[in-house]
Design a binder for these strands. Structure first.
Length: 429
RNA sequence: GGCGAGUUGGCAGAGUGGUAAUGCACCGGACUCGAAAUCCGGCGAACCGGUUUAUAGCCGGCGCGCAGGUUCAAAUCCUGUACUCGCCUCCA
């Protein structure tokens, strides 16, 4: 949520910035109109309420002295009616204003490339040489199916498209990857969390998924309940402190969690229909930080660095890009994606998204801290994948494949695989 | 799933229709070399609006889990709902 007071005092600046994210200027004009209408109503209603309080006090005195207050009561009956009418109108305007505010995305930071499409993302650096193959590298789903460590046919039967069974060494590899990630993240100061996988709609609003998520049918809501399957661990991690004041001494708070992420992938029909890239359910290790306002940009660098370290230890080539103003998630002020090299597709694919939301989520979720002057301030929240697990497995299968169809296990994962150095065909299934 | 109790300021805790006691804590002052104790005064949360250069001050609104209702007036009455605790039932 953006600060209404700031929009009120710098409307043109906000119009310009939000135009970079495809928000028409009329939306801001409309918002300002609602805002001033709302405040007019407040003034009217509150002055009547002040009068009512005053007269009620008199009525109370008269009654105590056994006087007659019929005139005043008659008058207050009218005033009461007027107040009710004004307040009903006010509620309507408030709801309309809130609806507009709830749909306004965060303002892009200065470094963000301005573009109304995803074209124009800035490449910051490229790390690791893509391997030269002396055979044609296979896509990961072929490798996985040939080795009998991935089964997309049976998942389709049991659940539908965009699900998968990992089997044997495949399941073990997935587990090795996320255990490696969790160990690495906790080693640099993140507290491991195992959060709920379903959250209520206040939480979904707090991190900025709702209301748009509902309109786009992007998530999986549980019928006849207020619960939604989490689309990312960011939701339960950030909302951990919703409606709370975090003691200053605790900041920065750093959480990491492994959770499944559930996404409907509405609107991506036909895209990445095969393999592990785009599933309704996938595992992800997430990092979340709560910081003081002046520390969040450093924290973003720290998160990206940690995500990069993971890929470097795995030995997978990647690059880091800055997303364009309109490609960022709704809540982000700036987002850097890590994309890993996928030999079979001959391109980089997203494996991590690291964002600073500044106080955008903190405002929605009411997460504050008390500064050295005792004043309440919104914290800044950040999130970054560290990393997507399924996509990591896909990247390992493709980058570490051998001509005979086997796959080498990256060295750092071998201890997590009971020393297994190579994945060979599993005949059991 | 059933029954019962609870939800009031940082904490504790009164208040069953007349507009939020009190204690601890906290802040200011007195006393003191200083502190403790004592005394005096203040403060009670966030939040919203008006005034203002001001996130200062002042004024007002709101405020007793949340949402409605009754009333001139609601922490108090009514309805719904969330959460917490206890007992029962069920269950990995």
């Amino acid at each position: 949520m953006l600060d209404m007071k700031l929009i009120r005092s710098n409307p043109d600046w906000y119009k310009g910035k939000l135009a970079e994210r495809n928000v028409p200027g009329e939306v801001i004009d409309n918002l300002l109109r609602k805002d001033s209408e709302r405040r007019d109503l407040i003034v009217k209603s509150e002055s009547l309420k002040a009068e009512r309080n005053e007269v009620s006090e008199k009525i109370s005195q008269l009654k105590r002295n056994k006087g007659n207050a019929d005139d005043q009561i008659q008058r207050m009956r009218e005033v009461g009616k007027e107040i009710k009418e004004l307040d009903e109108k006010l509620e309507g305007i408030k709801a309309e204003q809130h609806d507009i505010e709830a749909h306004l995305p965060n303002v892009p930071a200065d470094e963000v490339p301005v573009s109304l499409t995803e074209e124009g993302a800035k490449e910051l650096r490229r790390i690791g040489e893509p391997r030269k193959f002396d055979f044609t590298p296979k896509p990961h789903w072929e490798i996985g199916e040939n080795l009998d460590i991935l089964d997309f046919k049976r998942s389709a039967k049991v659940s539908g498209s965009r699900f998968v069974y990992y089997l044997g060494a495949g399941a073990q590899l997935e587990r090795a990857v996320y255990n490696f990630y969790l160990d690495q993240n906790t080693e640099v100061g993140y507290t491991e969390v195992l959060p709920p996988y379903m959250v209520n709609s206040d939480s979904m609003f707090g991190t900025g998924q709702f209301p748009k998520f509902l309109e786009n049918k992007a998530g999986f809501e549980i019928k006849d309940s207020d619960l939604t399957m989490i689309p990312t661990a960011e939701v339960p991690l950030v909302n951990f402190y919703r409606d709370e004041v975090i003691p200053e001494a605790k900041l920065p708070v750093k959480f990491t969690a492994l959770t499944p992420a559930f996404r409907s992938e509405a609107g991506s029909a036909g895209k990445d229909t095969r393999g592990l890239i785009r599933l309704h359910q996938f595992n992800k290790v997430e990092m979340v930080q709560f910081t003081k306002p002046d520390e969040s940009w450093d924290a973003l660098e720290e998160i990206i660095h940690q995500a990069e370290t993971l890929l470097q230890k795995l030995g997978i080539p990647y690059h880091v890009i800055t997303l364009t103003s309109s490609d960022m998630s709704f809540t982000a002020a700036e987002t850097h994606d890590l994309e890993v090299w996928m030999p079979a597709q001959n391109r980089y694919r997203e494996i991590s998204s690291c964002s600073n939301t500044l106080d955008f989520q903190a405002r929605r979720a009411h997460i504050q801290y008390r500064d050295e002057n005792g004043k309440l301030q919104y914290v800044h929240t950040l999130n970054g994948s560290g990393l997507a697990v399924g996509r990591t497995v896909a990247a390992i299968l493709e980058n570490y494949q051998n001509e005979d169809g086997t796959v080498n296990v990256p060295e750092v994962l071998q201890p997590y695989m009971h020393g297994m150095k190579k994945i060979v065909k599993n005949e059991k299934f």
